[in-house]
Simulated scan of single mutants.
Amino acid sequence: MKRETREAAARLCGTGRRAVDLGLSPGASGNVSVRTAEHVLMSPTGVSLGELEPDVLSVLAPDGTHVDGPAPSKEYPLHLALYERVGDAGSVVHLHSPHATAASCLPAWSDVSALPPITPYLVMRVGRVPLAPYAAPGSTRLARNVSELPGPFRAALLANHGSLVAGGDPDAALAGAIEVEEASRLVVSLLGHEFSVLAPEEVRELTERYGTPWD
């Protein structure tokens, strides 16, 4: 295994363990991947993210062909779809974290984003989070639903399912997933109450400064 691949594998496993430690990946749910120059390394099917080991990751070709290691998570088409949409993504994290999953069961806040600009941090660190229509986990339809979302985005909620986040590396992807979970927690906590969101000009100021997508 090349040095770059070994390092990417080690970082991916560390990210999986951290997701579990933070309570964002119950049981054997969720899956993570990292893209190298030649392959996509991915968590295997049925393995807790807290038990990932660099030498037993699934190895995929860029087109999704399984080339080495155990069978990948059934959600590999979902990851490949997000890599295609976010050209500079080096890693993808898909979690069934409790508040993001709860928020994914709610109507989208707007046509632009499932989550409102409830804090500056969601806007600064992630940008808009569109809601992908429901399809069965692991299905090519779910991957197509993500591919067909309009406009730029780096994170999405999957209806009645959870979150999907891309980042430059595994740490960045998990940081985005944490931000989506926190924004979702606030939204769910405020259900039934009036609450304020950032004004359009405030959102614009942040997106222009930090280069995140919203409109």
Results as ranks from 00 to 15, higher is better:
residue 128 R to E: 07
residue 123 V to Q: 03
residue 185 R to T: 07
residue 200 P to F: 14
residue 12 L to C: 08
residue 128 R to C: 09
residue 95 L to D: 00
residue 83 Y to L: 08
residue 9 A to E: 03
residue 95 L to G: 00
residue 45 T to F: 14
residue 195 F to V: 07
residue 40 V to F: 06
residue 86 V to P: 00
residue 69 G to R: 00
residue 209 R to L: 15
residue 101 T to W: 03
residue 215 D to T: 14
residue 27 G to K: 05
residue 154 R to K: 10
residue 90 G to D: 05
residue 142 L to Y: 03
residue 11 R to N: 07
residue 98 P to T: 12
residue 53 E to R: 14
residue 147 S to H: 11
residue 71 A to Y: 00
residue 19 A to D: 00
residue 112 V to Y: 04
residue 152 P to A: 12
residue 153 F to H: 13
residue 64 G to L: 08
residue 18 R to G: 03
residue 208 E to T: 15
residue 68 D to G: 05
residue 48 S to M: 07
residue 11 R to L: 13
residue 183 A to Q: 06
residue 124 M to G: 09
residue 79 H to A: 05
residue 82 L to T: 09
residue 168 G to R: 14
residue 56 V to C: 11
residue 187 V to C: 10
residue 209 R to G: 09
residue 13 C to H: 01
residue 182 E to H: 13
residue 35 R to N: 04
residue 26 P to Y: 14
residue 94 H to T: 03
residue 54 P to N: 14
residue 56 V to T: 15
residue 85 R to G: 02
residue 203 V to A: 11
residue 178 I to K: 01
residue 116 P to G: 02
residue 109 W to H: 14
residue 179 E to V: 00
residue 72 P to V: 10
residue 75 E to M: 09
residue 35 R to M: 04
residue 54 P to W: 13
residue 21 D to M: 11
residue 113 S to C: 05
residue 126 V to P: 01
residue 51 E to A: 14
residue 23 G to N: 01
residue 109 W to I: 04
residue 34 V to I: 05
residue 194 E to M: 11
residue 119 T to L: 03
residue 175 A to C: 10
residue 13 C to S: 00
residue 88 D to W: 11
residue 138 G to W: 11
residue 157 L to P: 04
residue 106 L to Q: 05
residue 90 G to M: 07
residue 42 M to T: 08
residue 91 S to M: 07
residue 131 L to K: 05
residue 132 A to P: 02
residue 50 G to M: 11
residue 200 P to N: 13
residue 159 A to H: 03
residue 126 V to T: 06
residue 8 A to R: 10
residue 38 E to C: 09
residue 2 K to S: 13
residue 120 P to W: 14
residue 111 D to K: 08
residue 69 G to V: 03
residue 133 P to K: 01
residue 107 P to G: 06
residue 101 T to C: 09
residue 6 R to G: 02
residue 82 L to F: 13
residue 200 P to A: 15
residue 146 V to M: 04
residue 171 D to S: 13
residue 103 A to L: 08
residue 47 V to M: 06
residue 41 L to Q: 03
residue 126 V to S: 09
residue 93 V to K: 01
residue 169 D to S: 12
residue 91 S to Q: 04
residue 151 G to A: 10
residue 62 P to C: 07
residue 138 G to T: 06
residue 180 V to G: 01
residue 74 K to F: 09
residue 154 R to V: 13
residue 172 A to P: 01
residue 115 L to I: 10
residue 15 T to V: 11
residue 57 L to F: 01
residue 89 A to T: 02
residue 197 V to E: 09
residue 202 E to H: 12
residue 3 R to P: 05
residue 173 A to V: 04
residue 174 L to P: 00
residue 160 N to Y: 15
residue 11 R to M: 13
residue 190 L to G: 05
residue 55 D to I: 02
residue 109 W to Y: 15
residue 42 M to N: 02
residue 153 F to R: 01
residue 97 S to N: 04
